[in-house]
Amino acid sequence: MDLTFLVIAGAADTVSVTSRNTVVQMHTPHELLGCVSAAEQIVGQPGADIGNIAADSWQMTPQEQ
């Protein structure tokens, strides 16, 4: 059951990242594309890392903390 939810969450994240990158590339002027793509990547990457930290701390039992 847990593996099923993990697969669904991973697929949803992939769709989200792909959609966001597509929108950025289609609606950004060519001369600004590199800067905007870099900024979008800097902002987008920590979200997954913060989610992993939150999930890890949620799974810890009081004795492990």
Rank of each mutant, 00 (worst) to 15 (best):
H30C: 00
A48S: 15
G10P: 00
V7I: 15
A12E: 07
V23L: 15
A11Y: 09
V17H: 00
D56C: 07
T61Q: 12
V17M: 03
Q45C: 13
G10Y: 03
I50K: 07
Q45T: 15
L32S: 12
A48M: 15
F5Y: 07
G10S: 09
C35E: 11
T18N: 06
D13M: 03
A54Q: 09
P29R: 12
I50A: 11
Q65T: 04
M26N: 05
N21M: 02
I8Q: 09
Q59L: 14
A48P: 04
A39Y: 10
T22W: 13
S57P: 00
G34V: 01
L6C: 08
A9D: 05
H30G: 02
N52K: 12
V23F: 14
L33Y: 04
V36T: 08
G51F: 05
V23A: 13
S16W: 08
M1I: 04
A9M: 08
T22C: 05
D2C: 06
A9Y: 04
H30I: 02
S16Y: 10
H27A: 07
F5E: 05
A55M: 11
A11Q: 10
A55P: 01
S57A: 13
P29V: 06
Q63I: 12
D2M: 09
D13A: 10
A9F: 06
I53N: 00
G51C: 10
A39L: 15
V43E: 11
H30Y: 03
V24T: 03
N52V: 03
A9P: 03
V7H: 04
G47P: 00
T61G: 09
L33C: 04
I53L: 13
G47R: 05
V7E: 05
N21L: 00
A48N: 14
T4M: 11
T28Y: 05
G44K: 02
G44P: 02
Q45W: 15
D13P: 00
A38M: 15
C35G: 08
